[in-house]
């Protein structure tokens, strides 16, 4: 019986020690991609012209600290991928890609920022296929929470 009491004691101790462990607040919030600002570009259904350079603009916020972001432009000629947005845009008919534009780049955000005005210059080559494209923004915070935004855009 003594053995049992001992074991019970060990368990109780383990429980108590674990419960009293440091209860530092952990971050459980996703970062936010805000494209509602007047300068934000592109937004859902934006159009961009070939052979021109445009400036990506969005506001990123997080409750603790932002991490990094990446941008991705790929064709949506087959209508397979869908944007994460509520509003849908007018889409051209399904077509076969010949020389679709593909753009992938990642960007750093200075350490420790809670809010960041992201800007990036992107050049659309003059010889790519025009049509429906997908503009993806992937934003992380320092803890690794990631927010995705998929926008439907058109390259003219």
């Amino acid at each position: 019986m003594k053995k049992i009491q001992f074991l019970l004691g060990v368990l109780a101790l383990a429980f108590i020690s674990s419960c009293s462990s440091d209860t530092a607040e952990i971050d459980t919030e996703y970062p936010v991609i805000d494209i509602t600002g007047a300068n934000a570009f592109p937004i859902q259904c934006s159009t961009i012209e070939r052979g021109q350079t445009f400036t990506f603009k969005a506001t990123f916020t997080d409750n603790v600290a932002l991490g990094s972001y990446s941008l991705d432009i790929h064709h949506n000629f087959d209508h397979h991928t869908h944007s994460t947005e509520v509003a849908s845009c007018y889409m051209e008919a399904v077509k076969k890609p010949v020389k679709p534009m593909l753009f992938i780049n990642n960007y750093t955000i200075p350490d420790g920022l809670k809010s960041y005005e992201a800007t990036a210059q992107i050049t659309i080559p003059a010889d790519v296929d025009p049509g429906d494209y997908h503009f993806m923004i992937r934003l992380t915070d320092k803890e690794g929470w990631q927010t995705l935004k998929g926008l439907s855009i058109k390259i003219l």
Partner: peptide, 9 residues
């Protein structure tokens, strides 16, 4: 499998 804040191009 730890989610980091980095993106890899």
């Amino acid at each position: 499998l730890n989610p980091t804040s980095a993106h890899d191009i």
